[in-house]
């Protein structure tokens, strides 16, 4: 078995979150260097605000101002900050009970060293210079007995949305079976595999035959021509599109394969593509090949007579 191929997989998106009334008031206050909470059904002041009471599930709407100073309830030391965290130098994660609040807020404390951290210590908010109405308007907390900066009223619109970037980094691994297929492609070969149980030829091969639950095994080299089973004509432009519409996305069943895959059919007008049309691969120049099916730029008609419906009807 060949070693599986792997490659980075980046998952990144800036999520746009609408806040609703309760969170909107909290975020708007942060922009003004003020911290607010909400009063719970039992009278407790929740900071950060709870939209719904943790005990009764009632919506909570009574806004209560609290101080920008408070006391550390517990903490841990982040010796090596991770991407996205409030500080890029060692800091403490802490639950901070703000003066006037009954629940603690999680944030960072810029203490410099764990030796300067202790439960019960006084801290104050260090406000971010540029505030947008987000929890990150609190840049962090800092050890201090002094008050934080004064509120700064603004006449801006209420904050109703936040943008939350999510950036995650993964390593994606192809299965061993798919890897041998991909390596074959890098050499211009189409390597399928046969399921030892049902005898069907899969391209790409599978770590488990979907009907038998066992890996496909015996290698079967397939030709680069086959039949269009079905298709659609893409007329809609969308993000990341490579070709100008209209063009044809078609299921191509290679001769000798038992499963079709989706690819492009070009080389004729879109409205000339038919179910049953015989097609062949048009490969990119060899120097552009890699371990990917994209080595085949597209399929084009061979000009042979169409395949009879019966020869592909069980693949629809």
């Amino acid at each position: 078995m060949t070693k599986p191929l792997s490659a980075p997989l980046e998952v990144g998106f800036d999520y746009t979150r609408s806040l609703g009334p309760t969170l909107s008031r909290f975020m708007t206050a942060l922009r003004q260097r003020r911290v607010t909470g909400v009063r719970g059904s039992d009278g407790r002041v929740h900071v950060p605000p709870a939209e719904y009471d943790p005990v009764t599930a009632e919506p909570l709407t009574e806004v209560v101002d609290v101080a920008s100073t408070g006391v550390v309830r517990s903490w841990s030391w982040a010796a090596e900050p991770l991407e996205g965290q409030p500080l890029d130098r060692p800091f403490a994660w802490a639950l901070v009970l703000l003066d006037g609040a009954d629940t603690a807020l999680l944030h960072a404390v810029d203490a410099g060293s764990p030796d300067r951290m202790r439960t019960g210590m006084r801290v104050r908010v260090r406000w971010a210079d540029d505030r947008v109405g987000a929890i990150t308007d609190i840049a962090c907390f800092e050890p201090s007995d002094e008050p934080a900066l004064e509120p700064l009223d603004d006449d801006g619109d209420p904050v109703t949305m936040i943008t939350s970037p999510v950036r995650l980094h993964y390593r994606h691994t192809a299965s061993a079976e798919e890897s041998s297929f991909l390596r074959g492609l890098a050499e211009g070969r189409l390597l399928g595999q046969r399921c030892p149980a049902c005898g069907k030829v899969y391209l790409p091969p599978r770590p488990a035959c979907p009907t038998d639950g066992v890996p496909t095994a015996e290698e079967v080299e397939l030709p680069d021509h086959g039949t269009v089973t079905t298709f659609c004509i893409v007329n809609v432009p969308f993000l990341g599109q490579r070709i100008t519409p209209p063009y044809v996305a078609a299921y191509v069943l290679l001769d000798g394969a038992d499963i079709a895959f989706l690819h492009l059919v070009l080389g004729c007008a879109a409205d000339e593509v038919r179910m049953g049309m015989r097609v062949e691969a048009v490969w990119k120049p060899r120097e552009e090949w890699g371990p990917t099916l994209q080595n085949i730029d597209h399929f084009r008609p061979t000009g042979e007579p169409d395949a009879p419906y019966d020869t592909y009807s069980q693949h629809l």
Binding site: H172, A174, C232, V234, R242, A249, L262, T292
Partner: peptide
Amino acid sequence: IPFTMPVHAG
């Protein structure tokens, strides 16, 4: 997704 043919179809 790495190694996966983009469908080009939306």
